[in-house]
Computed example of a mutant assay.
Amino acid sequence: MTSTVSTSYTLIPNQKYRRSNRRSRRFCKILDIDSQSLSTLGDFKALPIEIFQMVLEHLSVKDISMLSMVSKTISSRLINYISTPSGNRRLLQKDFHNLELSGKRQGSCILEHYRALGLLLKRCTLLLPTKDRLKYIHNILSETLTAGWDELECHRVFNFLCELSNLPRKMQTVVSSKPGHVVWQKMIEGPTDETSLKGLADAIKLLYDTEAKEWTADDVISLVDELSVVPREWLMENNARLLILSGNNICFTFMASKAVNGRAVELARLMVFLALVCEKDLYCMDWTVKMMQKVCQVFSTPGEKNNFLQSVENAFAHLVMDMLQSVMSGDRDEEDSSFLNLFHLVNAQANFHKEILYLTLRSTST
């Protein structure tokens, strides 16, 4: 039987506080993630692909949609299934625009079917970049679903969707609304402060709330990932600060997702910037160490975990060298930001390793 590992660690504070104020820390629980269940086929591994697809024929669209969230491998197989002739016939019904269909009940059933299908496509492509997701959905709609439609049918469907979702009013609201409070250009050009990101972080936490029915945890994590790269990639420090402000659950789930999907080097670099932000914004460094400890539990093998830890040390070393080179180049601004960044990073590295030593000594003495 697997031993139970403690899952508590310091909460991210609502307000900044000095590290000397350690007695006032609170603790929270984070659910363990079984990384093996997210990266394997499970019992389906023994089935040939043909038998697997026969099983899918007996599942509802909602059941297939739930199955798509089991693992990345399952999701890939479902994408392939949707593209097969049998999957097309089963899922992409082409008679919903037929005027001969009678009764309101029939129409509502078709609408419910495509609502479930939309959720299935959304979940299957969740791990893909936005451009690839849109390309896949476009291919499904243009090459399969709407094949053979004439212009009148397209207009009829468009008008129906506008009436159903009140699309014109929503578009008018988007076009006429004021820009958001997040200054996106600032996120690209240099480090920002908490004030610039707090509103966005609060909005993300609302979406992640368990009572929100339209957004799953995976949806929110995918959104956070896309926010920091579209239209241009944010500085990693700003990305780390947004994760900290978004709270423990979102931060951990975001990082665990990278661990599960083999992005250990990127994850290690993010861990370094979490430590840097904690140093700059005066958060307790033990939070970063315990977050890293939790992320390590996601890796399925000791080799993967050791590789990640080595990547963290390499990321620290590379970032120190980059900042040192910037300082030695003599290109300084009025605030001497290059030297200050190096100063904070060296202190962050020292405090980070100090907390690791404390944690190690406490575990060996008990």
Rank of each mutant, 00 (worst) to 15 (best):
D225W: 10
I244G: 01
T4A: 15
T173L: 02
A217R: 14
L270Q: 08
C251D: 02
C251V: 07
T288V: 15
A350L: 13
W184T: 09
N307Y: 10
K186G: 10
R105T: 11
G180L: 11
T192I: 06
T10M: 13
S102Q: 07
L206N: 10
E279G: 11
V265P: 01
K94T: 07
I82A: 06
V327W: 08
M236D: 09
W234D: 05
R22E: 02
K290I: 08
N307D: 09
F308W: 15
L200M: 09
E189Y: 08
T288M: 14
F158C: 04
T146L: 00
F299W: 15
D63R: 15
V295N: 02
R232D: 05
L92Q: 01
T192P: 01
R26G: 10
K16E: 06
T144S: 11
L282I: 08
V70K: 15
D32S: 13
G148I: 01
R269V: 03
C154H: 12
S65D: 04
R123C: 08
S196N: 05
A256H: 03
F27C: 06
Q293Y: 08
N341M: 13
A240W: 02
R133L: 07
R90D: 02
K122Q: 05
Q185E: 11
R232G: 05
I64F: 04
L56P: 12
I110W: 04
Q172C: 00
F308H: 15
D286W: 11
T7N: 15
G330A: 03
D286R: 15
T288N: 10
F252P: 03
L101D: 03
S39W: 02
V312D: 01
L164W: 12
H353E: 05
A268T: 13
L161G: 07
K305D: 11
L161C: 07
T364Y: 08
V312A: 03
V220W: 05
Q36G: 02
T301Y: 08
K104H: 07
S6G: 09
G87H: 02
I51P: 13
F308C: 14
N347T: 07
E313P: 01
H318A: 14
G330V: 04
T40L: 04
L207R: 10
N307S: 13
S228A: 07
D202P: 05
A201G: 12
